[in-house]
Amino acid sequence: MKTLILALAATTALTGAAAAETIKEFNIGILGGENAQDRMTNLECFRAKVEAELGVPTKLFTPADYDGVIQGLLGGTLDFAWLGASAYAKTYLTNPEAVDVMLTKQNVDGTTGYYSIGFAKADSGIKSIEDAKDKVFAFADPNSTSGYLVPGAELQEAHGKLEEFFSEVKMSGGHEQSIVGVANGDFDAAVAWADGLGNWEDGFNSGAFRKAADSGLVDMSTLTEIWRSKLIPEGPMVVRKSAPQDVKDKMYALLDTMWETDPTCAYAVAAGEAKDFVPVKHEDYLGILAARKLQEAQ
């Protein structure tokens, strides 16, 4: 990985005054998907590591929705975030010079993708997406890849206008809210993200179900899978493009080695079990960019 780090530095190196820029603080944006306090608690280890590595005060920011993180990156108030592919697409389409992509999660089987998983209560009688017709269905957030963009497109292609297929379509506000909402009977069915590996009763190996199961928010045996999307590219960790190169290099190296140096913290960052964090590039998201353009045009 050292070669990759050096290559990244060489291809994106800054010159002159920009290279000498220093930072006084570093701000990390955390996408929604679970309540703000849980996000802060689970990622405190990461915040502390970044602060120690960069030598400046480091803060976590937990906006109420995905757009809060996107706007923070666009406005320069956030320096780093792990975006979903759709959120990255919105960021890039708004300002191609806002962020650089860095790394993403590699699953235990070597893949770098995940799924949108449709689910319902196990005792609801809903065993397939067809059984959810004329029921209340929840997506997570308009800027979520697995919580809206991909499942919305795939389900619409298969079943037509979703507002006519389901009795009501709602936005829960996040993956955790969707899971808890179905478990509590607020929605008949919903979608949330998972790597699709491992056991259902554990919430798979990683993803929103795993986090909800680990935190005791839901007993997975009370839920059942009713639908699964095509494989979705795992979203990129991004850093503010105008950040000093040494800051980018330190963040890259920290994440690149985290599964070796601190697997417990890496587990928290990855929302479950994974193999590694591996490099990605802008071109890996061209398909999602095209889908996002189409969605916005409609």
Rank of each mutant, 00 (worst) to 15 (best):
M102N: 11
K121V: 00
Y115M: 03
G110M: 15
T58N: 09
K293A: 15
R47M: 04
N95Q: 05
T41R: 08
P244Y: 00
G84K: 03
R292G: 02
L6N: 14
A36R: 09
E53T: 12
T257A: 14
V101Y: 01
D249A: 14
A212N: 09
K49S: 06
P233S: 07
W200C: 00
G152D: 07
D284P: 08
F26S: 01
E130I: 06
F80H: 03
H175S: 15
F137Y: 13
V169S: 01
A243G: 13
K250A: 13
V136C: 03
Y66N: 10
A13N: 07
D249E: 15
T62V: 15
A271V: 15
T58Y: 10
S146L: 02
L217D: 06
Q37T: 12
M102V: 06
F187P: 10
P279H: 00
V218G: 01
G203E: 06
L8R: 13
M258Y: 10
A290Q: 09
Q177C: 08
E164T: 14
L74H: 03
L286R: 09
G16Q: 05
V50K: 00
K275T: 08
Q298G: 10
H175C: 11
Q156Y: 12
G76T: 02
T77A: 09
L6K: 15
A89E: 01
Y92I: 11
M237P: 07
A290K: 04
T94K: 04
